[in-house]
Each structure stands twice: as C-alpha cells, then as structure tokens.
Write a protein that binds this DNA or RNA. Structure first.
Lengths: 191, 191
DNA sequence: GAATAATGTTAGTTATTACTAACATATGTA
DNA sequence: TACATATGTTAGTAATAACTAACATTATTC
C-alpha cells in the first residue's frame, strides 16, 4: 500500500504532533512505523532530516484566493463558506500545527511558513469586508472584523480538538453555523 | 528579593512554557535561575518534582462564580466584563497553558485541573444565557452560545500571543470590545 | 536461479541527561 | 569567634539517545 518512507513519515508526524520533537525518540518512531531503527536512518540520515521531510509532506498549502473568487456577496452565506473552508485548512494542517505548538522557536523557517496562512487569509478577509462596507452592507472596521473572525476560527478549531475532553454538548458544525449567523446579524446594518 | 526556590521555580516555568518539559534540562534551569545545578536538586529532589511545584505555584485558580455575581443584566456590558475577566484568567495562566500545550498527555492530573476552568466557565455562561433567554432578551440556545463565546475567547487569547509575529494592525482590546459589541447585537432580539 | 537492493539484527560509540557523593566556600547567627 | 546552614565545585554513575558498522536475511528483478 505505501512505501517504507511513507510509513516512517506517517509515524513521525503522529508522534511529533503528540509529544513534540525532543520527547520522541527515533526508536519510538521506528517501532510505530513497524520498521527497524536502522531503516529509518538509512532513509532519512538523521532525526532532524526526518522532521523536515515530515513537515514538507504534511503541510497543506491552501489556495485561499480561490475561496474569494466564488463569492455570492451574501454576507451570511459567504462567511459560512469561508469559515468552513478555513476550518478545513486548519484540520488538514492539524498535525503540523500541533507539532509546531510543541516545538516553539524550534525552527523559524517553519514558523514563517505557518504564519503566512493567517496573514494571507486576514488580508483577503479584510478586502472582502472592505468591499462589503463600500456596498453599504456593514460599517465596522474591515481589519478589526477580519482579525476577530480569524481569532474565532482558531478558537473553534482548537476547542474542537479538545472538545472530547470537555463536557460540552455542542458540536463544531452547530457552533460554526451559529457563530456565522450571529456574526452576520451583528455586523449587518439594520434597515 | 526572592528565595532560591523562587528563582528556580520562576526559571523552570519560563523554560518549560517555552520549550516543553522534555526539551529543558536541569542544567539549563539552574543556569537561568543563576544557581548551581546541585542547588536545584537539593531543593526539589528531582526534575518532575520541580515541575509539579512550578505548576502548583503558577496555576491561577479563578473564582468564576464571583464574575457572575455582579451582573448588570445588560447584555453588552455583562459580556464585556466577563470576556475581559476571562482574558485576564487566560493571561495569568499563560505559562501554565503553554507548558501544558507542549506536554500533552504528560500528566493527566494537571490536564484535569486545567480543563476544569473552561468547563466551569461554560456552565456559568450557559446559565447566564439561559436566564437572558427567560427574560426574553435572546432566543439562541444557551449552551451553543456559551461554547461559541468560550471558543472565541480562547482564539482571541491565543491570537494575541502570536500577534507580534503576525502583520495584524488591530490590538486585543479593540478586538474584544468589537467582538462583544457584534456578538451582543447578533444575539439580541430586534424590537 | 542468480544478482541486486531493501530490510533486519546486533553490537557498539559518543554525547547527553538526570542525579549523587564528597568536599570546599560563603554567609548569617549565637 | 564558633557553629550551623545554604550554596558552589568537581567528579562521577547509570541510563538513554542519536547514530554507525558489519553482517544476516528477505524481497525483487532480470
């Protein structure tokens, strides 16, 4: 089904995201991958190299721009689509994000790549809100709205990650549509 | 100014929250504290014990209940106060939270303690929204609102932590009041 | 079926880490 | 001054981690 390298990379990303780079041993990764430790080194030379390969393999680079090309210019529907898509990006990058959280300042180059996403997304969101303001749909400051929207999205994502450990009775999907509805109503100009 | 134990605990919490338990060495902590490694072991016996002491010392146990005793039953003002206070709790527990994020599944006992906060807070919030619904101020599901509010709060907190690394022009305070305003308007029954 | 490549196994090296023992120094107190 | 206590220093131990070398075994290909 999949190559030896794939098995090792898969095992590495799982363990790195669970415990962090330092706390995981190469022996552990090899065992999880079902290969001998020697095979790991033969393929990846050293642990750090394996980390880089795992990062490159698992980082999901989204095309945010596409999200903003199919707009309906209906506030609630647009925001719901954007929110869902962003949640999807976060979920797809879940392991990378967790891995990074557990290895702060470990490698600035990866951090830079990961920070590109929210920055780019914020700018696109900001432009969207600006256009909506020009159209007279909203009045709030576009940048502030974008940051707020982004922060909430991350909060929802993270909450859903630990949700199983909490005594919450609400699922993520309900939360998202509810949030978008409220947010939309909250920023819409009343007629 | 402060005792040797204090200096060591302070150094420990800083390093643990930056790099995680495993990635930090006792030698490193001793150096950061400006004492010899031997002194560290004389006071704390072993690394894990130091971790526990640091946790106990730095965990800030909030009295959420007090937050809900001085309510004005004005949606926006109440939510603003609650939000600000919760942000304060998160900030005060910042190092503990980061330390925990970097040591997932490290110690279930600490995780349980940390999860108590959002659970308790959610229940109180939920009751608040329920009462507001009874008063005819809002119509939404109280639990959903509470989870959404909580998630956003965490998102705002976390965003503010990494804000300096992002190209955002909006500060946390602006974001909070803006969010509360929008949220309030979004859930209020229009007359 | 032979040659080649990929993997396993085992033993070992080097560096590091948590942690200890023993002794030296400083610092404050009776 | 004398004594006790806190700290520093140095050396060392046991365990573990990353990583290598050498050889055995299996799988793949021609």
């Amino acid at each position: 089904m999949c190559t030896t390298e794939d098995k090792i990379i898969d095992a590495a990303i799982v363990l790195f995201s669970q415990k962090g780079y330092t706390a995981v041993t190469t022996k552990e990764i090899a065992k999880e991958a079902g290969v001998s430790e020697m095979t790991l080194f033969r393929h990846f030379e050293n642990k750090h190299n394996l980390f880089e390969r795992a990062f490159d393999r698992f980082v999901f680079t989204p095309k945010f721009i596409a999200l903003f090309e199919n707009l309906e210019w209906n506030l609630e529907r647009d925001l719901f689509n954007i929110c869902s898509s962003y949640q999807d990006v976060l979920r797809k990058n879940q392991k990378i994000i967790l891995m990074h959280l557990k290895n702060d300042e470990f490698n600035p180059q990866f951090e830079k790549m990961l920070l590109k996403f929210p920055n780019e997304f914020k700018n696109l969101l900001s432009s969207y809100f600006e256009e909506m303001r020009n159209r007279g749909v909203i009045v709030e400051n576009p940048e502030t709205l974008a940051v707020s929207f982004l922060a909430t999205n991350f909060g929802l994502f993270f909450t859903s990650l630990v949700m199983s450990k909490l005594t919450f009775n609400t699922d993520l999907q309900t939360c998202i549509s509810n949030y978008v509805k409220i947010f939309t109503k909250g920023i819409s100009l009343q007629k």
